[in-house]
Design a protein around this nucleic acid. Structure first.
Lengths: 144, 144
DNA sequence: CTCCGTGCAAATACTTTGCACCATA
DNA sequence: TATGGTGCAAAGTATTTGCACGGAG
């Protein structure tokens, strides 16, 4: 978990530099976010944050998530009919595949799709600001 | 508008066959849906339905939209940070491009992207149930 | 010591639901 | 006439906000 601590420290410094005050609550949430390998929603993040900083409120979690999103530390995901989920900003952009049976979320990236999207937008006189691609999938029978 | 009336009539028959009772409220909403060339939300659909059937309630609109979605007559769209919008099910599947400045929604379709998506899912052992692709775009300066 | 952040509760926005009455098939 | 649909108001979710107090810089 040393890697997470280091990542948290880096984020802390970067945020402080950006003029964001690092409170115990924010520290706790940063640790949770840096350590999350899944795609938790606000309530789940709050649940985890409470373990590190008892008493932290859900409002503070929401407020901090908004701030972290603005600072580019995390990204907000909005899947069909679900509460918003969050993920830390990776080095690379990626899209999501959601297993409709299990709810499992798999990340993927396709340069070809990215390129095609830009091409399509350009052909219609637009440039892409951001995009959202979600594949709702089911595990293949795969012969047995 | 004869085309819309005919489309409404077709839908009415299909729904009746599927065991869905056609009330004045549902008739009104069907007409509105069949005549909508844009992507209205529930409140806007209600506004339009009231003109055809004064007194129709928002709850009924929501309930009917859920029913129409289940029957495959319409599709629910969920863009970022907006209330759900609805569109009638076209012959062809398509994706959406949303102009972030104006809010305008443009439909598009790319066989190549569709094929790539299926390919990517297959490579990971999945088959696609449905997908969602949204391009949030901005009009290009285009040398002006 | 001064703001900015926090917890709390209330407000908000969208959507769903319980219930008594009404209308379609 | 027997369901199933409707309007209304109230409840439900997910998220945001006003306010007085508290802690980070």
């Amino acid at each position: 978990m040393a890697a997470i601590d280091q990542r948290t420290e880096e984020l802390t410094q970067a945020l402080r530099t950006a003029g964001v005050r690092i409170t115990r609550q924010r520290k706790a949430l940063l640790e949770v976010v840096a350590g999350a390998e899944d795609h938790p929603d606000a309530v789940e993040l709050h649940r985890r944050a409470v373990e590190k900083m008892p008493g932290i409120s859900l409002s503070t979690v929401y407020r901090t998530l908004t701030e972290l999103e603005a600072q580019g530390v995390i990204q907000r995901l909005q899947f069909e009919g679900e509460a918003a989920r969050f993920e830390h900003t990776e080095t690379d952009h990626h899209d999501h595949m959601i297993d409709v049976e299990t709810g499992e979320v798999v990340e993927f990236r396709s340069e070809r799709i990215e390129a095609l999207q830009a091409e399509i937008a350009a052909a219609m006189g637009y440039e892409i600001v951001r995009h959202r691609l979600e594949l709702y999938v089911r595990r293949k029978p795969s012969g047995g």
